[in-house]
């Protein structure tokens, strides 16, 4: 009989692990909280740094899951787990020979940065909202008009002790560059500003895209964090920042403020960790057994990690890691069967 592995989370990480395990002769079962597979990538329009439509990556994964007949329990949340299986919120249990935790991350709630007025002022949106608007084919202001000046603010809910998010969410810098270019392509007459603390272009092709945004798209980069956004009488938004490279305060009115919302740890990580005797990193993400040689293993044999449940990761990193996870699961299954 094939060994059975339960994968908590049916996003990109969970699906990629499932597909790999199935190829290696395992019976994977995906448990997904939402009604559909796909996770966070499902709401995304295009991927950095290549502007590949997100669907071009996601759809084949979902299709293959269907074609290979991999069992998926959607609309089911994992409440507790051990190396022998998971317990669902419904009370049902699924027994297995190993468990992979691929429950991803939670998008930072930008309302918590009250000074930006997200949810209060029109035309203050998050990076995720912008992707949704692009998917719906219509980026416009609340009154239906087109923006003439747009600011993107980096590190909303990242590197910020005020909201208990000390870590860097890693992908927002390049997302800001990508979205700035997309906005400039949509609205060539508009001025687009990026407000950043540092620009962290860690991935292949990122720095090149950053340079292109500056040189070819004339996108302005101001090193300084926006301190507040306020409404103006003409419906625009006033923002304040320091232009730290000139050492002067700076203010301007804009039509649209895009908050690059960070990745934070899931609220239920603690409960999942407690149920299985796992550890949390100080930032609330799951702690791997070892950052170098055991990145996809938990400290507990038989429980594995994939994707952003252990730290903010790009989609490319997540998909690459999925194979490592499947590999580690196979090693484990072989060792216990022997």
């Amino acid at each position: 009989m094939k060994p059975k592995v339960v994968i908590a989370g049916g996003g990109a990480a969970g699906m990629a692990v499932a597909l790999r395990l199935e190829r290696l002769g395992v019976e994977p079962v995906i448990v997904e909280r939402e009604e559909r597979l796909g996770g966070k990538v499902r709401g995304w329009h295009k991927l950095f740094p290549t502007f590949t439509p997100a669907a071009e990556v996601l759809d084949p994964l979902v299709a293959q899951i269907g074609r290979r007949g991999i069992e998926c329990r959607t609309g089911a949340a994992v409440e507790a787990l051990s190396e022998h299986g998971v317990k669902l919120a419904s009370g049902q249990t699924i027994e297995a020979d190993a468990v992979v935790v691929a429950t991803g991350f939670t998008l930072f709630d930008a309302r918590r940065k009250e000074e930006y007025g997200y949810g209060i002022y029109d035309n203050v949106v998050t990076s995720a909202d912008l992707e949704r608007m692009m998917n719906e084919g219509a980026v416009r202001l609340a009154d239906g008009s087109t923006p003439r000046r747009i600011a993107l603010l980096h590190c909303v809910g990242s590197r910020d002790e005020k909201v208990c998010q000390r870590h860097c969410s890693k992908v927002c810098c390049i997302t800001g560059v990508k979205q700035a270019i997309e906005l400039k392509k949509m609205f060539p007459e508009a001025d687009v500003f990026n407000f950043y603390m540092d620009i962290r272009m860690f991935g292949a092709g990122y720095e090149e895209l950053y340079r292109e945004a500056q040189q070819s798209y004339n996108i302005h980069f101001v090193r300084g964090r926006i301190s507040e956004a306020s409404p103006m009488i003409n419906g625009r938004i006033q923002i304040k920042a320091e232009d730290t490279l000139t050492g002067r305060p700076l203010r301007m009115s804009i039509d649209m403020l895009v908050l690059l919302a960070g990745m934070r740890a899931n609220d239920d990580n603690a409960a999942l960790a407690a149920s299985a005797g796992l550890a949390l990193a100080p930032n609330g993400f799951m702690q791997s057994a070892d950052p170098f040689l055991g990145a996809v293993r938990s400290p507990r044999r038989g429980i594995f990690y994939a994707g952003a449940v252990t730290a903010p990761k790009s989609l490319a990193d997540t998909l690459a890691e999925a194979s490592l996870t499947a590999d580690a699961v196979m090693d484990y299954l072989n060792s216990v069967q022997r």
């Binding site: 000074e115 507040e228 306020s230 409404p231 009488i233 006033q238």
Partner: peptide, 13 residues
């Protein structure tokens, strides 16, 4: 509560 309208303006804070 007393029937007035609050003005929010850029330098309110």
């Amino acid at each position: 509560s007393w029937g007035g309208e609050v003005v929010d303006y850029p330098e309110r804070r």
